[in-house]
Design a protein around this nucleic acid. Sequence first.
DNA 1: AAAAAAGTGAACTGGTCAGTCTATATTTAC
DNA 2: GTAAATATAGACTGACCAGTTCACTTTTTT
Lengths: 206, 206
Amino acid sequence: MNAPQAIVKHGRKWDQVLNGARTVFMRDGFEGASVDDIVREAGVSKATLYSYFPDKRLLFIEVAKCECQAQSDAAVAQVEATDDVREALTTAAKRMTRFFMSDVGLQVHRIIVGESQRFPEIGREFYESGPARVHAILRSFLQKEVDRGNLNIEDVDLAADQFPELCKAGLHLKMVLGLREPPTNEEIDRVIDGAVDMFLCKYSAG
Amino acid sequence: MNAPQAIVKHGRKWDQVLNGARTVFMRDGFEGASVDDIVREAGVSKATLYSYFPDKRLLFIEVAKCECQAQSDAAVAQVEATDDVREALTTAAKRMTRFFMSDVGLQVHRIIVGESQRFPEIGREFYESGPARVHAILRSFLQKEVDRGNLNIEDVDLAADQFPELCKAGLHLKMVLGLREPPTNEEIDRVIDGAVDMFLCKYSAG
DNA sequence: AAAAAAGTGAACTGGTCAGTCTATATTTAC
DNA sequence: GTAAATATAGACTGACCAGTTCACTTTTTT
């Protein structure tokens, strides 16, 4: 029964630490989370946590990177699988918007923005593993459609920046600040359709 | 010489306290600013500060409200003075974008977003005195142009949300996270023109 | 089963900080 | 000129918290 356990690069409690940290950081924010809370939640000793991570900040960066990569991968997967441009954009917008409005998405955004002053590398890691990936994928999708003659875009880079902003349209800021209930599906559709309509109005070929 | 000093609603040192607080909060953020730093900067004793404000949080709210009102008043003034729609929108966009990218605008945004979890009323006060005012003014301007027949907008509320988002277009997030230099005037114009073009492409009458 | 690796718990250090208090001084109002 | 209001310095309290250390236990490897 020498089942070849996947190489455990970090010792038995690595996952516990990371899961506990994710739970507490997402609940209490960076400053609000105490390391003692995290080890309690993780069911792990403080010494163990500090044997994995040199300090609280790097632990948080690890958590944020994992969340971001997972979510941004999911958000843009199979956008390129669709032939119809409107349909592809609508799908992408749906995924993006849902993530923007999700509890995890909002909380990561709050913490990253709040801490980016004190710890600039947090901001960079987040940007690279989240928004930058979305931008790159969107950019290459748009370029492909331009080459195919389906879209007519002078400044593809700008267009790839505009589309995600349109998907936020007022909702995102209000949610980030905790000023409203999560939007209904109808509200999300209204924003998404508005975004796609406006985007295609400007950039449709012909 | 009984010069009728303007009614000092708050004692002689009120302004000193507020100015010192603004300086330190803008430099160090909310958590990063210690009350001792603030009284030192303000040239005032700790007891004096606490005679004006019951706690640090309310002091910060006062500072943030002042900044926001001043800035959002300036940002939308005289938008309605122009007859040409494109010109009016371009002017509004310029003001908004400049504020979004200014040191004060970025820092207020960072602090508010970071602290809105712990102190929800901070988020509300900020929203009411900033974004909500911009939205209201923009909304009424757009409605007026619709009534005049210059614009054709089904959902004026949505449109008034879309326009400010378009003015951010990638730049804002990068600036908030400290990932780039302030944009040049050319970069700002590129974003603004892109925003106005797209907006009018969708909503121009006729 | 023995050795090596990983984990434990709890106490401890050194530091920070919000908010209070007191006895004293200065400014303003009458 | 006197009383009331306002301001002062800074010590103090009580709490919190990141990160260390150490003697001890459990798990894994061989």
